[in-house]
Amino acid sequence: MLWLIRLVLLILILYLLYSSVKYIINPKRKLELAQEQKRFYFLDDQENVRKNFHITYKGVRFEGEKYLGATEKAFDVVSIFVWTKNVSSLKGLTREDFEYLQNEIKERYPNAKLDWKSPIHEFLQKSQQKND
């Protein structure tokens, strides 16, 4: 009976260690932590085109939807739509911030055409017209 209790305790301790390690290395937790700390973090599975990527930058969380298509040499991600669910969190972001995000996305997906959904799309068009 004593051996059985020891075995159960050992299994419980191993399970707790396993669970805590899984929690610590969880990428979604890292994304949420980066958002709280207002840092840049890019969460993406580049091998899986069907999975959206997530970016956090200056406390704002963006989501990007990837679309597969044909390029000159192979099939690759050819179109990306990016948006944020919390529009009010965009307060304080500038055109340079969006250019930084575009560069980070282009670095990972050089063949993709990047489109921003409303209201970011309108903001970038207005600031582009002012610069012209």
Rank of each mutant, 00 (worst) to 15 (best):
V77L: 07
E104M: 13
Y23G: 01
L12M: 12
K66V: 00
L114W: 01
G92L: 11
E99L: 11
I120V: 15
G92V: 06
V60R: 03
L31H: 04
L4F: 14
I11T: 06
R108F: 04
K106E: 14
K22P: 02
N131S: 15
Q35Y: 00
Y67N: 09
G59V: 11
L33K: 15
F98D: 07
D97G: 05
D115T: 14
I5E: 12
L2F: 10
N26T: 08
Q102K: 12
G92K: 05
P27T: 04
R61A: 02
F53N: 00
L4W: 06
E72K: 11
F62E: 00
T71G: 12
K66R: 14
Y41A: 10
D132N: 15
E63I: 14
L93F: 07
N131C: 08
E47L: 09
E32K: 12
T84K: 06
R95N: 08
T94K: 14
L90W: 05
D45T: 02
D76H: 07
D115Q: 14
Y41W: 02
F53E: 00
Y67T: 13
L93R: 06
Y15S: 13
I120K: 07
L14R: 11
Y18A: 09
K28D: 13
E63P: 05
E65D: 13
G69L: 01
Q102A: 15
L31W: 06
V21H: 06
G64V: 03
F123E: 03
L114N: 10
N111T: 08
E99A: 02
R6F: 13
L2M: 04
Y41G: 08
V21I: 15
F40N: 10
I120Y: 03
F81C: 03
K73H: 07
K30M: 04
F42Y: 09
Y23N: 13
S89M: 08
L9H: 10
I55Q: 01
M1R: 01
I13F: 13
L10K: 12
E107I: 00
L14Y: 14
P27W: 02
R61W: 02
R6E: 00
N26W: 09
K66Q: 03
Y23D: 11
K58I: 04
M1K: 00
Q102Y: 01
E36T: 06
N48G: 05
N131E: 15
G69S: 04
N52R: 09
V87F: 07
Q129A: 11
L68I: 02
I13C: 05
L14M: 15
D132F: 06
F98C: 04
A112I: 07
G69I: 07
I120P: 08
G59T: 07
K106G: 10
